[in-house]
Design a protein around this nucleic acid. Structure first.
Lengths: 216, 216
DNA sequence: GTCTATACACCGATAGAC
DNA sequence: GTCTATCGGTGTATAGAC
């Protein structure tokens, strides 16, 4: 659905390269992937890659930007229904889990891009940062609104965002370690549902002010 | 305290190499570090490294094992005071934040080792997994005991552990992204304290059954 | 737009002198 | 235990034919 070419099955070489490189970068990181491996899997010569991307770094950047872009779009789409802050957070949690489930490479890719600093040039990093900031700002607004209206406890907004990013991105990037811990694959249907429930539970119990606590 | 030389300032070559390699692997990952760079910073020739470690992989493993080992030890030490499950979790949170603050490379190193699967051989990975399992088992026991005694809500234990690992390891590995989000360095004193408070808050509000709920 | 051929630096690892 | 020299291989990237 949705991704590369609009109406037919044909995919541009550029997209094919991106699709091929994405899981490789996700698994092995920027330094861990050789262009030979990418070219081989795409089915073309190494040199041909340079016709579509000026350098390995730019290929990596293109992969990242595509992911951040759609991530941002899907969150924005869900934000357009305007609901209360808690419902908004619940909705986003559902969207994020859905997206990461649909694209099992993305969590690792996002995780890398968030904590591996240097690999990308300043300008490219800045463009990605803009998108990321937009995502953060949205969550931040929801939290702020919720705190103002006393639906959400007065938690630290940045620390809560860090926690929520960790609860989603880190969890779905945790690979074998996560599988072992859960005793079942992270991306199995029951565990996807379990993670979503866990997120909803977090929102309701760690963030929401309990009815019992609210002032008379 | 165990590690390299006990009473004097001299450090074995082996330890010096480990100390040098640790931040490099933390920042750039296994594939992103060249032995030339390591050797240069240690102040010896590339080849000399092979006198102390049979291969690059084994050097990496040695770095990881050292970290996991001390991590495990410090948690065990703190476990020896026997307290209630909630107090135990609070204590561990304090210990973990303290350790990660003391060793700013560790979070990134641990994060990589948790989600980058392939780089290490089976046997070495198995040895690390044993240590990690011990850590997980301890937390798991505390949660289980707390749930049994009704001090802790009946949360999913594996998912809660994933969340807590993310709240610590991911947070302290988040580098520039985390700094930007907090508006202040993650490892600054106020933000260290803030993260610890956030963790305590999580334990008290997301995990603990509220006093109001507990049976007489 | 893809290919072959090639440039040049660096990689991890080994051999052997000191 | 550290060094120099060197091995074979791979890395990104370029040149130029088709």
């Amino acid at each position: 659905m949705a991704s590369p070419a609009s109406t037919d099955a044909s995919t541009s070489s550029r997209d094919k390269i991106l699709d091929t490189a994405e899981p490789l970068f996700a698994r092995s990181g920027f330094a861990g992937v050789g262009l030979r491996e990418v070219a081989e899997q795409v089915g073309m010569g190494k040199s041909s890659l340079f016709h579509h991307f000026p350098s390995k770094v730019q290929l990596y950047v293109a992969v990242l930007e595509r992911v951040f872009h759609e991530f941002d779009q899907r969150l924005e789409l869900r934000a357009s229904q305007d609901e209360g802050p808690l419902a908004q957070l619940h909705g986003w949690a559902t969207v994020v889990v859905g997206m990461l489930a649909e694209h099992p490479n993305w969590a690792a890719l996002l995780l890398r891009s968030l904590f591996e600093g240097d690999v990308i040039g300043r300008e490219d990093q800045a463009r990605i940062d803009v998108i990321f900031s937009r995502i953060v700002a949205r969550i931040s607004s929801a939290l702020q609104a919720g705190i103002a209206s006393n639906e959400i406890r007065p938690v630290s907004i940045p620390h809560t965002i860090q926690t929520m990013v960790g609860m989603t991105v880190f969890h779905f990037a945790s690979g074998d370690m996560g599988d072992d811990l859960l005793g079942e694959p992270i991306y199995s249907q029951p565990q996807l549902q379990a993670r979503l429930s866990h997120l909803h539970d977090y929102i309701d119990h760690a963030l929401a002010t309990r009815p019992l606590d609210s002032p008379t």
